[in-house]
Design a protein around this nucleic acid. Structure first.
Lengths: 208, 208
DNA sequence: CTCCTTCCCTAACAAGTGTTTGGTAGGTTA
DNA sequence: TAACCTACCAAACACTTGTTAGGGAAGGAG
């Protein structure tokens, strides 16, 4: 259930979505660059060309901005993941599709991904952000299942620790958010292809 | 030049090293768990069983604690890296040794590595922490050189973007600090072996 | 005993934090 | 014109932040 944002806030459905999204994008950029805790509401307001208090016309709190950024990102991510997982693909094709979708998501929601990478671990302990660990568990289930299917189908190596492999694949994909910049030389699809080539075939040269 | 800690502080060489190290280990644990900015001096003092002001008998500032943790970690890391790089090994053996040493360093200095992972990017902009980006550049030079040597010697695939491969290998190793726990089922050497097997040979099953 | 050093506490400081309250310019509606 | 809504400002609020100054208990040195 990707439903994660809480809808019982006062102004959460009031102001027109355009300005909200604009301000959220600005906040996400500052959060990603400076870190959530190091980011003051005055910095966000500065970047938006207004005063700190004015933000509270649009949002309930600084934390609700973070909440909206993260849950919005996760909702979209899971929409695409669920589409892949429900397509009835083989294990290798599933893995390739998941990796490709992940890089596309990094391309679209870079700031949100960077924030998620940095803050999700210690945010998950707070009850309000419990959906972060739910998502991570669902994440693990999807990837682990795909890997195990692949081992059973003899398309992945059986001599590797599956859980270690899961973390390996997961991390190699998502840490790319720490250096990837949209509009650079490589498209998300091209990066995905090269990453998949490394993960699947390895970087060593085999004479064949 | 791995010399990175600044030695021109007032009390930096005063109090006996034992208590300093003890307090630094405590501070590192809290920094790693909560993030540097989210960690207050009072939280560190709580964990150490004393009051906030008492920390300033041992350290100049909160930032100097972070500085000492990070520079101490990097000094030790580079001592080991330099030993590997100066051993005259082939490219593949060099890469294997670097990866293994990295996992050993994660095992020994887990908190410092986690802090470095989370904070180094936005700390590097501050002039006092310029040694972080210096280290990162030296890092890149060492890994990139090894990879290029390997391609020239036909032990690594020539069809991969070398810089992408560098980030791939670097990240896959260091993000392990986000889940690795010392004393777990796998020793650092065993994790290094499995990681190297995945990076070098890939996770796909090849009939041979 | 006295002096001195070590290590910590008490108590406060100024600056910065997220947030609230009341107000207001400008446009839309009646 | 009058009433109203939107989107912001101005100014303050209570609280937390890193840091400092002065003091004092414990113990070793003379």
């Amino acid at each position: 259930m990707p439903k994660s944002s809480n809808s019982d806030h006062k102004k959460s459905t009031v102001s027109p979505p355009e300005r909200r999204e604009e301000l959220l994008a600005i906040a996400a950029r500052v959060f990603a660059a400076q870190g959530y805790n190091a980011t003051t509401v005055r910095k966000i307001a500065d970047a938006a060309g207004m005063l700190a208090g004015s933000l509270y016309y649009h949002f309930d709190s600084k934390e609700s901005m973070l909440d909206e950024i993260l849950s919005g990102f996760l909702d979209e991510l899971w929409a695409r993941y669920d589409a892949v997982l429900g397509a009835g693909l083989g294990p290798r094709e599933t893995l390739e599709a998941l990796v490709t979708e992940s890089f596309r998501e990094i391309d679209r929601h870079l700031d949100a991904v960077a924030i998620y990478q940095k803050e999700s671990r210690h945010l998950g302990t707070r009850p309000h952000f419990a959906y972060l660990v739910e998502s991570q568990q669902k994440f693990e289930k999807a990837w682990l299942g795909t890997l195990e299917r692949g081992v059973a189908a003899k398309v992945f190596r059986p001599d590797l620790d599956v859980r270690l492999t899961y973390r390996f694949v997961r991390d190699t994909v998502w840490v790319a958010a720490s250096w990837y910049r949209p509009g650079g030389r490589h498209s998300p699809e091209e990066i995905a292809r090269q990453y998949l080539s490394m993960v699947l075939e390895g970087i060593a040269l085999h004479d064949s």
